[in-house]
Amino acid sequence: METALSVLVGLFLATAFYLMLSKKIIRILLGVAVMGNGVNLLIFTSGRLTRELPPIIATDAYVLPPGAANALPQALILTAIVISFSFFAFLLVLAFRAYQDLGTDDTDAMRFAEPVVDDGPPQGY
């Protein structure tokens, strides 16, 4: 199971980084979203996998039965999902505003901070 998910994580991340290497902000955003899922799966898999036994203690027990899923990575991922969603939304809005203000969706053409025609550092005193 871990093997299959490891390969899947590799595919997720490969897809994400391939998309993020694009110049189009929309493709970069899609890459960021995919990367979030890939990283969550990475953490999930490295905590080892168990089938269908959630980390919930039975009403008549005081500890988890052996063979239950690992709760720790789940706790980490749960907050990570929400935070990566917040950031995805932030990046989305940022990209949208950048498009509105700069008039382009090509990161190469977004040259406000790093102009193409650079006068260089000031000479003289």
């Binding site: 994580v9 991340l13 980084f17 890939g38 990475l42 898999t45 080892r48």
Partner: peptide, 21 residues
């Protein structure tokens, strides 16, 4: 080029994850 970089990074993460598990 991008596919090589992206694919390479995916492969690297996969190997590391396999090693961990």
């Amino acid at each position: 080029v991008d596919a090589v970089i992206g694919g390479g990074l995916g492969l690297a993460f996969m190997l590391v994850l396999l090693k961990i598990t």
